[in-house]
Amino acid sequence: MPPHTHPYSEVVTIISGDIGTSHGDTFEKKGELLKPGSLWVYPAKHSHYAWTGNEEAVLQVQFVGPGGIDYINPADDPRKK
């Protein structure tokens, strides 16, 4: 998932698979992959991104809406392809 922001804070829990996540405007895989049961919080309008290992992963994302996503680089937005 390329760098993006949301108008809300989000709580993310890994249900299955391994996920890497970090923050900033530039995608850079840094740090270890997190395991199922891991949880993190990103505040509203805080740029962040995520990646998986070699297999798919399932996340639970909780937030209070309305929903929304803004990609740091508009070319990364799949809605515009």
Rank of each mutant, 00 (worst) to 15 (best):
P7D: 09
G65W: 05
E28T: 09
S47M: 00
L34G: 02
K29M: 12
E10L: 13
N54H: 04
Y71S: 03
I19G: 05
E28R: 13
L39E: 00
I15M: 13
P43C: 00
K29T: 06
P74F: 01
E28L: 13
G65K: 09
A50V: 10
T13L: 10
Y49S: 02
V11H: 10
S9D: 14
S9A: 14
P66F: 08
P66I: 08
W51L: 01
E10I: 08
V64N: 13
V11L: 15
Y8I: 11
Y49D: 00
K35Y: 04
S9C: 03
D18A: 12
V12Y: 00
G53L: 07
S9Q: 14
T13Y: 00
A50F: 15
T26A: 12
A57F: 03
A44S: 12
G17A: 09
I15E: 10
E56L: 07
W51R: 02
F27A: 12
H46F: 15
I69C: 10
H23K: 15
S16D: 12
V41Q: 07
Y42V: 11
G17K: 10
A50H: 14
T21K: 11
F63P: 02
W40D: 02
V61W: 01
L39M: 11
H4C: 09
V41F: 13
H23C: 12
L34N: 14
E28C: 05
T21W: 14
T52V: 08
I72V: 15
V11D: 06
E55K: 13
G20D: 05
S47F: 04
T5F: 06
N54R: 05
H23W: 15
Q62S: 14
V64C: 07
H4S: 03
G31R: 13
V11G: 07
D18N: 13
L59G: 02
W40P: 03
P43A: 07
T13G: 00
H46V: 11
T52L: 03
G68V: 08
Q62W: 04
S38Y: 11
H48M: 08
H6Q: 09
N73Q: 12
G67Q: 12
T5R: 13
H4R: 12
I14M: 09
P43R: 09
E10K: 09
P43T: 03
G68M: 05
V61M: 09
E55C: 01
H46T: 14
Y71K: 07
K29E: 13
H6G: 04
S9F: 14
T5D: 10
P66L: 10
Y49L: 05
F27S: 03
K30S: 12
T52G: 06
G37C: 06
H23A: 13
A57R: 08
Q60W: 02
Q60D: 00
P66C: 10
H48W: 07
E55A: 13
T21D: 06
W51G: 01
G67W: 11
V11S: 08
I19P: 10
W51Q: 01
G20P: 14
E55H: 07
K35E: 15
